[in-house]
Design a protein around this nucleic acid. Structure first.
Length: 468
RNA sequence: GGCGGGGUAGCCAAGUGGUAAGGCCGAGGUCUGCAAAACCUCUAUCCGCGGGUUCGAUUCCCGCCUCCGCCUCCA
């Protein structure tokens, strides 16, 4: 069955075929963070969705060439850096570093490139694109010395967002401001330097200034991936104006169709409202980790609802994710024990199917895919209870799980359950106590082990430790 | 006001023109020195409301209610 994805541009689920159908490489551009602070988990919901997309494409045999930009210059970044009396790059450096750490914690596969908007080669490309746009009459310099895109020159403008520009409701911001523009919808390509910019600015044919946000992505995507992309992703709030503007800029320069599939992740909500920095109702990843959750728990919590639906973030949801992982972990441990003797897998209907991948083929239906996983867990546990699974079957099931986990990436961290010697010693004493039926001593030892942060449980196969 | 997406059990959520996946919680059971865990089983006569089409609708159509998002630099 073919992979099908919802394309924001057509508003339809379409069969996916990459530009390079023979080579099976997919050019994927994903809008990254603006690094004036820590990214919040709403940002990461989008990045995790993109990671799922990449990994599922890979599971289906594609090679994914992914680029994620870092926006390291914009109004807020400049303002905050000046407030702190720091140079722009000095101000953004720690947030860039934190962002990469967070990606790692959430097990998001790094993109091939993370271009930064302020890198000289990209600034040069932005300037050159704007020059072309001005030459071709798609852009003009206004009285305020900034350069704007003339949206009336690009009839397609508004198509992606399904906005009729004639009926746009003027907001306060537009009414008071930017009267120098020919049309209220015209957006800035190059922003002329002003007082508030301090020492941030680059020379250009239109004077000192800095690029507008939209042209950054057009320039970096083009520089690294070329004129035509297979998939371009972002949060749904990027549809308008950001992605609309990217289309207008890029296509006016290249004359080619910029993006074949546009995919947008719905917002993360908190208390039923959009989580955003401006509403100050957001959690950073660090906030959630500080409450004792792990990266894989956050990953699953943000992954488990289909990207096309808003997801309301709650700590009840975090607890759900934790419980689900527990169920998966114990199942994997049980299979691993059972498979110990078998060096090779043996086919079994519970393991030899592609239903997980087939669910994801339907526009990344992760809920359906997780349903397949949990059904498989229940059925194989049941078969294990009835002694219907050989070690070789268990091995095969583990292989199946290995494939599934390539996409989900939710297994415990390596080394997370390394038992300290002290605990091991107590455990050995307790085993002896239990053999001797010295229950009081056994219970005391259990308490001592608990005090060291480990829970011991007595199962049929002896004592089992889990970290608390 | 315009555009777009939702409303399925206590919570999260899949899905289909033919009678409701899965997870969490809860209940019962198995196991167990105890405890905990684990595992198994069970848990929506019903899919926001009202009409219509149909042999049959949660699924298609119309209307309504309601929630959320976007409408010029927020993932």
């Amino acid at each position: 069955m073919a992979l099908r994805l919802f394309n924001t541009y057509s508003r339809e689920v379409e069969e996916f075929t990459p530009l390079d159908a023979a080579g099976r490489t997919v050019k994927l551009y994903t809008c990254g963070p603006t690094v004036y602070g820590f990214a919040h988990i709403g940002n990461f919901r989008t990045f995790i969705f993109e990671d799922l997309l990449q990994r599922h494409l890979e599971a289906r045999g594609y090679k994914v060439d992914r680029v994620m930009n870092l926006t390291d210059v914009d109004d807020k970044t400049i303002r905050n850096s000046r407030e702190q009396g720091k140079a722009l790059d000095e101000f953004t450096a720690p947030f860039k570093k934190a962002f990469f750490e967070d990606l790692h914690v959430l097990r998001i596969k790094p993109a091939r490139a993370f271009p930064e908007a302020t890198a000289p080669e990209y600034i040069a490309r932005m300037v050159s694109m704007i020059e072309t746009l001005v030459e071709r009459d798609y852009a003009y310099q206004a009285d305020d010395r900034s350069v704007y895109y003339r949206i009336n020159r690009f009839p397609e403008y508004g198509h992606l967002a399904h906005l009729d520009l004639e009926t746009l409701r003027p907001t306060g911001r537009i009414q008071n401001d930017e009267y120098e523009k020919e049309s209220v919808g015209d957006f800035a390509l190059w922003k002329a330097w002003d007082e508030a910019d301090g020492d941030v600015g680059w020379p250009s044919p239109w004077g000192r200034g800095r690029p507008g946000w939209h042209i950054e992505c057009s320039a970096m995507a083009g520089a690294i991936l070329g004129d035509e992309l297979d998939i371009h992703c972002g949060g749904e709030d990027n549809i308008f104006p950001h992605h609309e503007a990217e289309i207008a800029q890029t296509e006016a320069v290249t004359g080619k169709k910029f993006v074949r599939y546009w995919m947008h992740c719905k917002h993360l909500m908190v208390d039923g409202q959009k989580m955003s920095k401006s509403l100050k109702n957001f959690y950073t990843l660090r906030d959630v980790l500080a409450k004792g959750y792990t990266g894989r728990e956050v990953r699953l919590a943000l992954l488990r609802v289909n990207y096309g639906l808003p997801l309301n973030f709650t700590f009840e949801g975090m607890a759900d994710a934790r419980a689900q992982l527990q169920r998966i972990d114990t199942w994997v441990a049980r299979l691993t024990d059972h498979a110990a003797g078998a060096t090779q897998g043996e086919a079994h209907p519970l393991a030899d199917h592609e239903r997980f991948e087939e669910a994801l083929d339907k526009d990344l239906n992760i809920s359906g895919a997780l349903g397949v996983l949990f059904t498989t867990i229940t059925e194989s546990n049941s078969a294990l209870d009835k002694n219907q699974l050989t070690p070789a079957h268990a091995r095969r099931l583990l292989e199946w799980w290995g494939r599934v986990n390539q996409t989900l990436v939710i297994e415990p961290d390596a080394g997370a359950d390394e038992v300290p010697d002290e605990v091991k010693a107590l455990l050995a004493q307790r085993a002896q106590a239990r053999t001797d039926k010295e229950w009081k001593l056994s219970d005391e030892l259990r308490d001592q082990i608990a005090a060291l942060g480990w829970a011991v449980k007595d199962t049929k196969d002896g004592q089992k430790l889990t970290r608390v």
